[in-house]
Design a protein around this nucleic acid. Structure first.
Lengths: 135, 135
DNA sequence: CGCGACCTCCTAAATACTTAGGACATCGAT
DNA sequence: ATCGATGTCCTAAGTATTTAGGAGGTCGCG
């Protein structure tokens, strides 16, 4: 067993983001939504190559529709988030998620006030889920 | 101008972590603290190369002591944290720090309860700082 | 003095990531 | 039937990252 996590590379992630946000699409759809690189868009074949890579790695599924393949995310966004965050927490914050949140505050990316509001919302949501809820 | 941020690569970060935690050190000190790779430690010269790279990039300063260079972090840990987190937030959470915290909870890396405790601590600290404090 | 220990610098090579061109197939329209 | 648009596959090359060997310098010791 080697690296089970197989973190997404930057460009792979950009493409997955497009698929997660706009739903399944073909090469053209993805290419159109990718932001330009130094004023020039990425070549069609470049995007295609990346989608191929993603497919080979099992991160997307594909299906022939008309002439072109339509790519659909296989990897769940939440799973990608989970491992990306875990990765950062391990590398940079000694494995402590709390440290990451503190870091967010210390580097002025989040104020304690906003954190409080968010936390209350999350707690409320959890309470609701526990009491009434369908899981 | 190209990439101003110049994110640290994984191995660069590992080395910076050692320097941040244990203070300035020479190649040997760093090499000893790096965990093994597939059962074998990294070669002395490999560590040296990395320290060279870090030096060329201005992330560390170095100073000849006796025979060997002693490397000292130039980049502040907080700055590295800041840009690593900002990077993740941008790539994965659409620029929203709150989304990152939510992600932490959704992926079971942090409970709302622990978040609450943390948030209270942070608010208290801030209040103290604002009222009495130095800084 | 010559040797081993220790260290630096230079250089190269393996791997991973990004980028993209060219060959070829198919469909629809001229 | 040919042409252009569109799409795939294969392949290669550029760049970044990681890994490490070899040449050569200096110091202390027998």
């Amino acid at each position: 067993m080697s690296r089970t996590t197989h973190q997404l590379t930057p460009l792979e992630l950009e493409i997955m983001n497009i698929l997660w946000e706009h739903g399944p699409g073909n090469v053209q759809a993805v290419a159109q939504r990718l932001p330009e690189r130094d004023g020039e868009p990425l070549a069609y074949t470049t995007v295609q190559t990346m989608l191929n890579v993603l497919h080979r790695k099992g991160k997307v599924r594909r299906e022939l529709v008309d002439r072109a393949y339509v790519y659909t995310p296989e990897l769940k966004r939440l799973d990608a988030m989970g491992s990306a965050v875990r990765d950062l927490v391990d590398r940079m914050f000694g494995g402590s998620a709390e440290s990451l949140v503190m870091g967010l505050v210390e580097t002025d990316q989040l104020t304690p006030e906003r954190l409080k509001a968010l936390q209350e919302k999350l707690l409320a949501a959890k309470a609701a889920r526990t009491k009434g809820g369908k899981k």
